[in-house]
Amino acid sequence: MRDLPSSVKLWFSPARLRAEGTTPDYRFSLANERTFLAWIRTALALVGGGLAADQFLTDLDAPVRLTVALVLLAGGALCAVRAVNHWVRCERAMRRGEDLPPSRFPAVLALAAALAAVALVAALVLVR
């Protein structure tokens, strides 16, 4: 986390990122970009799920529906921010010849999605 401010600066400055280290094999940079795009698709799906929950889960009480929608929307926002941060960190590591940075985010996202699914199933069963 202590490196976050310098990483955020690199989000908006591709020239600064290119100035670090040497250019890696383009295949690795493109694979890193594809991973970034997959995370962005996940973020968009979470945002879409939040909007759908708010509009279509009308059988749920309004506070429960709002909570589900807000959690999904916040998850989408977090996923998008995490995507760009991880992309920059990986690109920087490849340019420097370092190991790729580890990430717990996929496990956290998977657990959160599983818990959200279980909570929604429970809420829908209780409504019936």
Rank of each mutant, 00 (worst) to 15 (best):
R34E: 07
R34T: 07
R34L: 09
T35V: 09
F36Q: 02
F36D: 00
F36C: 05
F36P: 00
L37D: 09
A38F: 08
W39H: 05
W39D: 10
W39V: 01
W39G: 04
W39P: 00
I40V: 14
I40T: 00
I40L: 09
I40M: 06
R41Y: 08
R41N: 13
T42C: 09
T42W: 01
A43R: 00
A43Q: 02
A43G: 10
A43P: 02
L44S: 09
L44K: 02
L44M: 13
A45T: 09
L46Q: 06
L46E: 03
L46P: 00
V47E: 08
G48N: 01
G48A: 10
G49V: 02
G50C: 04
G50H: 01
L51I: 14
L51E: 05
L51K: 03
A52P: 04
A52W: 12
A52H: 03
A53Y: 06
D54H: 15
D54M: 15
D54F: 15
Q55R: 15
Q55T: 12
F56Y: 12
F56R: 06
L57M: 09
L57Y: 08
T58G: 10
D59N: 12
L60T: 07
L60I: 06
D61K: 15
D61G: 15
A62D: 11
A62G: 07
P63A: 07
P63R: 08
P63K: 07
V64M: 15
V64P: 05
R65E: 05
R65S: 05
R65H: 07
L66V: 13
L66D: 12
L66A: 08
T67S: 14
T67L: 11
T67D: 14
V68T: 06
V68I: 15
A69L: 08
A69T: 06
L70Q: 15
V71I: 09
L73V: 11
L73M: 10
L73T: 04
